[in-house]
Design a protein around this nucleic acid. Structure first.
Lengths: 162, 162
DNA sequence: GATAAGTATGTATAAATAGTCGGTCAAGGG
DNA sequence: CCCTTGACCGACTATTTATACATACTTATC
């Protein structure tokens, strides 16, 4: 399809999405059906399905507030979810050793923070908490057995032999 | 119930919501069912209904991204939806007059911006656009007839005597 | 012209989320 | 002890949103 024809087809959609943005910004829209009715007053007659697709394209989310759910535009890019432990460890892991209920994990320089945060995120029951510096993480475990399990698990995730 | 008892009961909920926050921040959670399974791995066994309630309390929204929907924490306070024209005008309106395709609306000091934005938000077909200063709005209409209609409508909304 | 390809959108329905109701538990009277 | 209250939460159901599929329309290509 030609660029001109594309524009012709899109014109309606663009305008409608503009109207959606304006409506969202000036009214407390609680549902797509609600939005549909508001747009109807402005001359746009579309189905809920179309609005669902429009809202996705416009990155408009239904966010909970104290007065119930409301639609609102989002900041475009949601913070990338942090990478999981199993992709992080093989990259950054150096070695790990432990004593009593504590384990000390050494990483490449700067690797401690992301790994500590990923570890916290995993929420292993064996681990009470972590303290991360630049290339060292202190891991406090629930027991000696817990520490042994955690160390084994970390080594395996890191791709350590054995 | 005593404060201590309350705390005892809440302890579980608090911890769970903490776990939810951590999970949301470290994983790409696409649905409440997804979240339920992730929490299960961490030892929390709750139903989708409970998660729905938790997410509302935590102000966590499902936002559309290019890779599909993801849950993410919101900035706590969603911008208050602007009040509609019919509540704004009676408060702020001073007078309106027009010539050719233009109308000039005078408001109380500082009233121009909210009214102009509300007018834009209404999306009347008669109005091409508005320019708002501090207490004056220039309204560009589609035609002289359109201007007359718009002025009449605004006067009536403002509670002007016929 | 016939055919294919791409976009948009409605219909019907699936999937996801929210709300209602009832049960449980802890606390605090009486 | 027994009743009431309030928070929590699961089962069930209602509401809301997303998707699969079909169709219409436009343009490109042969």
């Amino acid at each position: 399809m030609s660029w001109e024809g594309y524009l012709l087809l899109m014109a309606n959609k663009r305008e409608r999405q503009n109207a959606i943005l304006e409506t969202i910004e000036t009214h407390a829209v609680v549902s797509q059906e609600d939005l549909r009715k508001l747009l109807l007053r402005r001359g746009w007659d579309v189905t809920q399905a179309t609005l669902s697709r429009d809202l996705r394209e416009l990155r408009i989310a239904r966010v909970p507030t104290s007065e119930g759910a409301r639609y609102a535009v989002t900041d475009g890019h949601i913070e990338e979810a942090r990478v999981a432990l199993d992709t992080l460890l093989p990259q950054l892991f150096m070695r790990i050793d432990g004593v009593s209920e504590m384990a000390v994990l050494r990483t490449v320089p700067g690797g401690a923070q992301p790994i500590a945060s990923a570890l916290d995120g995993e929420g292993w029951p064996d681990i009470l908490g972590t303290v991360g510096g630049d290339d060292t993480i202190l891991i406090i475990c629930r027991s000696v057995q817990a520490r042994e399990r955690a160390v084994r698990k970390i080594k395996s995730l890191a791709g350590e032999p054995g």
